[in-house]
């Protein structure tokens, strides 16, 4: 696994970001920064706008006003294709429901992310196998998602997210669909990743996940940041 430079420079910078869906305000003048090497958890009640915030950072959605800068790139300046290329190089995403392709075995699901960048199948599979090995699921490389356990699926999803060595790893309720044991494993994995320098942004309802993996907690309500606290990680 690649270690990260934790220089403290801002990897994510949001300035006065507003997002409206019709008359509904999803984000209201959000301003925040995430520095390189940080692990930030965003918590809040359902519908408070935390997933919208994650979408803004990932370039999956555009703000109504304000600027979102990730790794020095103002996302508002990018076209749809530019955003796709940006995500490919800079962002890794982990979802609550894994979102693996059912028709591909674990190895090819992971390799896919590199193949989209133009890597050969051989190169992509070698890198994917390396990651699966590091995440402890190399022996499941030829198994299709339907036959994997929840924890294994999420590990495969994490491997896929790390495939292109992203500057920022975004996780949306990564333990939400897992049982407690699998959830624990994923939490350990995320913590390990952060400890070797991977910048993390986790959206979660789970206080245990937040306190265990994050170094900073952002509390969200009604589309805005209501509190920000540095955390002492619990073992």
């Amino acid at each position: 696994m690649t270690t990260r430079d934790s220089s403290g420079q801002a990897v994510v910078r949001l300035e006065a970001v507003h997002k409206e869906y019709g008359t509904t305000k999803a984000l209201d003048a959000v301003t925040l920064q995430i520095r390189a090497g940080e692990a930030v958890a965003v918590m809040g009640p359902s519908g408070c706008g935390k997933s919208t915030l994650l979408n803004m950072v990932a370039g999956l959605d555009r703000p109504t006003s304000g600027t979102v800068t990730v790794h020095g790139q103002n996302l508002g300046e990018l076209t749809e294709t530019g955003l796709a290329l940006f995500r490919r190089r800079r962002i890794g995403m982990i979802f609550q429901f894994f979102n693996l392709l059912d028709d591909l075995p674990a190895l090819d699901n992971v390799a896919l992310a590199a193949q989209l960048t133009g890597s050969t199948a051989r190169q992509a599979r070698a890198r994917a196998l390396e990651l699966l090995d590091e995440l402890g699921v190399a022996d499941r490389r030829d198994v299709y998602p339907a036959a994997l356990s929840g924890g294994e699926r999420q590990r495969v999803a994490v491997a896929r997210a790390l495939m292109n060595r992203p500057a920022l790893l975004l996780a949306d309720e990564p333990t939400g669909a897992l049982d407690s044991r699998a959830g624990e494993q994923v939490m350990d994995l995320l913590m390990d990743l952060n400890q070797i320098g991977q910048t993390l942004m986790i959206v979660t309802h789970d206080p245990q996940l937040a306190t265990r993996c994050a170094s900073r907690l952002i509390e969200f309500a009604d589309g805005t940041v209501v509190a920000e606290n540095n955390l002492e990680r619990t073992p």
């Binding site: 999956l60 796709a84 290329l85 979802f95 992310a113 989209l116």
Partner: peptide, 14 residues
Amino acid sequence: DLGMLKSIGMTPRQ
């Protein structure tokens, strides 16, 4: 699946 592929960097043209 399409959403996931786009999220990992598949461009609209792809």
